[in-house]
Amino acid sequence: MRKSICVIDDDVIYQKIIKKLIDQSTVFGKAYFYTRAKEALSDLAEIQTEFPSVILLDINMPIMDGWQCLDYLETLFPELYEIADVYIVSSSIAFSDKEKIKEYPGVSGFLSKPMKVEMLKRIGKRLK
């Protein structure tokens, strides 16, 4: 069975792009897309049995940014890193963001936009 993926990013255009890329990668089954972190959190809490294997999380979002969202995820799902690979995805090249990722040792990696099909495939293979 193909793994599921969840994308949390406020950029509507990016959402459209990543949707296409996920389709093209063919490694993922079910895919969830959220432009607001809050919505993602409440949804994920509901679909626990089909928790996504991969989470792609944007940093720069209004109301709740990526880091805050990650804090919530960690508290809501204590076994988060065992059941899912969490990637931080950003167009940011800020040093501070790359530093901050060290505070979250469970995070699988930092991915720089633009995303490529190959990246998604590689992520899909490394699935837990």
Partner: peptide, 13 residues
Amino acid sequence: SHNLRSHSSNLSS
């Protein structure tokens, strides 16, 4: 840079 990069990455994608 973030802003412009997000546009440019979207463009290239």
